[in-house]
Design a protein around this nucleic acid. Structure first.
Lengths: 102, 102
DNA sequence: TATTTTTGGACATAAAATGTCAAGTCAAAT
DNA sequence: ATTTGACTTGACATTTTATGTCCAAAAATA
């Protein structure tokens, strides 16, 4: 189960590209990219989209990695992390059902 | 499946207390409490603990409501919301297993 | 309608996140 | 051993997002 940072680093290495080359494409500082790859900083949603486009990866696939990382981060160190996540999933399901005309 | 705000409002109404009375106990502005109860503002973790104590409710139970609300909020309006939540749950499970000596 | 309770909205403040720069480390090449 | 190139680190700046406050308006109640 890879983090968004690990995924980006792997994609970059598969193409044998340098930090500065990818950073230029995505239009971010190379130091920031370095941090993103090591999960020291989270990218923005928009940057994730640009990564997907640049690497020719499915956008939603990367977005799922991105948002799931953010969700985990939100409850890191919380005793109730897992329980909260399970309840949140139920709430989401409920919301989705409501939207689809019941 | 109630939100943290709905829960707090119900607890307050069960005891027939006014916003200003509970707000004073929790040491927050009564306008803020009004907003919290209507999910217009999220309380802080510490405030949730004080609510639990004041209303004689299980702290973890309220914290689960609180954090699950935050998790849902994080991916509101996202197409990939449910999928991200499911993946996040797997990641949490994985992290927990790692902690418990594998 | 007078009083009390609750809500709305603009604004202030604080917290958390992302972004930048320059200096630093490390390895490979020369 | 020195230079070069790639990457990392850390302090700080900037931006974004959240919480908190005040006061007036609205709603409910007496």
């Amino acid at each position: 189960m890879k983090s968004i940072g690990e995924i980006i680093r792997e994609l970059r290495e598969q193409k044998s590209l340098l930090l500065r080359q990818v950073a230029a494409e995505i239009e971010i500082d190379q130091a920031l990219l370095s941090k993103i790859e090591r999960n020291e900083r989270m990218p923005t949603k928009d940057q994730v989209k640009r990564f997907a486009k640049f690497f020719g990866k499915d956008e939603n696939e990367l977005l799922v990695s991105f948002f799931s990382d953010k969700l985990v981060y939100e409850v890191r160190n919380e005793e109730v992390a897992l329980k909260a996540m399970q309840v949140a999933e139920k709430k989401i399901n409920y919301i989705i059902k409501s939207k689809n005309g019941k």
